[in-house]
Amino acid sequence: MAVLKVTPSKDTPKRDIAASFGSHRLGLSDALVWALAIFAYFFLGAYHQLGTQVIIMIILALSLDLAIGYSGIESLGHAVFFGIGAYAAALFALNVLSEPLTGLVVGGLAAGAFGFVTGLLVLRVRGLTQVILTIAIGAVVLQVATTWKSVTGGDDGLAGYQVAPILGRYSFDLYGHTAYLYSLCVLAFVFALARILVNSPFGYVLRGIRDNDQRMRMLGVPVAARLLLIYSISAAIAGVAGAISAQVTGLVATDSLSFLLSGNVLIMLLIGGMGRLTGAFIGGIIFVIFSDRAAAIDPFNWLFMLGGLLILAVRFTPQGVGPWIDRMGGYLLDRRRKP
């Protein structure tokens, strides 16, 4: 891809080129979240439960970012893949094998396969119709899960499966120490994968499709096939998030398929910023921790506070909090360089 090779000429300042390929570099926000995650492991032992929830949501938001932020696939039904991944991992643990890593793969594959099939339908249309279609698919799957009691347990939820220790050594504990490290490792893996993906030629093609699919088609890009591929990948990652959730929680219920979850993860992405991967981290952290604290302070009206946060975020950081932190970081670094 010739487009990608930009050689700096003498009259272009280096920073500008670097800035236009910002996603290649590790910004301050990247360093910050990973430092925070490791800090949390050593110093915030009591918060590992919450930390695990944050990480699961980050993985889900990452998968949504690949679909919406990078490829312009407008999905408001991503919980479907999360839920299918969760149910698949739980059923696998219940009926086949209790080994968690295989369970993750099964969850991811099940959700990815479902993403492939529904993608054939969803990706034929764009815009509002696409949004409605994803919601509709979500509603159908939720209904199936509620009614098909012999498999999913319906409204009682699916429980009673055991998850074996990870690698045969580290079993899940009440305090969530193992769960936290486990999900953090999966997150690191998923993040690395997503990063390689979006910075590859494939990733640039996706951004091209997002911005102007007509033009990409004229350039000879098989748009439909590319979109189907990323939609399946995104679904599989969401499924992995669901599988972790099923394994660390020890049960799956229909709420993992709910529209509410689809909406929440989109809100996380809005808060953090789309099309930049780190947005998922920032949004996930802010959303989950804020919800947790707000609900502890006022169990009746915490949703009201959450709404307030969203209004503030949209009003003052319409691109999300992520770019804003990076700008602040750039500003600080510049000041240090030029005294």
Partner: peptide
């Protein structure tokens, strides 16, 4: 007394809340 909201029938959330109330 600490009150925690399960927001209706939501077993996964209830379990997390119980774990957090105990451990944290």
């Amino acid at each position: 007394v600490l009150y925690r909201d399960s927001g209706g029938p939501n077993p996964a959330r209830a379990k997390q809340l119980a774990q957090e109330l105990i451990t944290r």
